[in-house]
Amino acid sequence: MKKKKVLFLCTHNSARSQIAEGLLRTIYGDKYESYSAGTEVTRVNPYVFKSMVEAGIDLSSHRSKHLQEFIKDEFDYVVTVCDNAREACPYFPNAKHRIHKSFSDPSKFTGTEEEILAGVATVREEIRNWLEETFG
Rank of each mutant, 00 (worst) to 15 (best):
K2Q: 13
K3C: 06
K4D: 14
K5W: 01
K5G: 09
L7E: 12
L7V: 07
L7Y: 10
F8R: 10
L9E: 09
C10W: 02
C10Q: 05
T11C: 04
H12E: 15
A15Q: 03
R16C: 09
R16N: 11
S17M: 11
S17A: 10
I19A: 07
E21C: 08
G29A: 07
G29M: 09
G29H: 07
D30I: 02
Y32R: 01
E33V: 01
A37L: 11
E40W: 11
V41C: 07
R43Y: 12
R43H: 12
P46I: 00
P46K: 00
S51D: 12
S51Q: 04
M52W: 03
V53R: 08
A55N: 15
G56Y: 00
I57Q: 09
I57P: 10
I57K: 05
R63K: 15
S64A: 04
S64Q: 01
H66Q: 09
Q68N: 15
E69K: 07
F70Y: 15
K72M: 13
D73Q: 08
D73E: 15
E74G: 13
E74F: 09
E74Y: 08
F75N: 05
F75T: 02
D76K: 00
Y77E: 13
V78F: 12
V78A: 12
T80I: 04
V81K: 06
V81M: 13
N84Y: 13
R86L: 15
R86K: 15
A88T: 08
C89S: 13
Y91A: 13
F92P: 06
P93T: 04
N94I: 06
A95Q: 06
H97G: 03
R98I: 14
I99F: 13
H100V: 04
H100K: 02
S102I: 05
S104L: 14
D105Y: 01
P106F: 03
K108V: 04
F109K: 04
F109Y: 12
F109C: 03
G111V: 00
G111A: 02
G111N: 01
E113C: 01
E114R: 03
E115L: 04
L117R: 03
G119H: 01
T122D: 15
V123Q: 11
R124G: 07
R124E: 11
E125P: 02
E126N: 14
I127H: 06
I127Y: 07
N129S: 15
L131C: 11
E133Q: 14
E133N: 13
F135P: 05
F135T: 00
